[in-house]
Amino acid sequence: MTGSILNLVTVFVLAGFLGFEVISKVPSILHTPLMSGTNAIHGVILVGAIIVTGTAHGTTQLSLGFATIVLATLNVVGGFVVTDRMLEMFKSRSKQLTESGAPGQSQPSGPKGEDA
């Protein structure tokens, strides 16, 4: 048991350093989408929720597990969908570019999904 906790602490420390290094110089326009994206990633707690519920005994544990899975699923699904919607403006821009083809001509307001 001591060995396995030490392994987890090792993973924890390394992941901590990696988390600091992996995002660097984020333009401010991406701050909110990045926050939302990391929000979706911690929805991985759903994995834990499924394991806890799948091994639960008794009504209390099962009800707790049920509630946990509902909350965690909201986190995962909502997180990724909201992030994708925020990032739609970046996609529509590149699509508009390939459609317009000729640079140097100002386009009338192109096809846009959302009001940013």
Binding site: G16, G19, L34, M35, G48
Partner: peptide
Amino acid sequence: HSTVLVVAGTLVGASGALL
């Protein structure tokens, strides 16, 4: 004892603090 939870959670914790 779930490595994937520790990795993902810590990544978000650290990058979230920096953000």
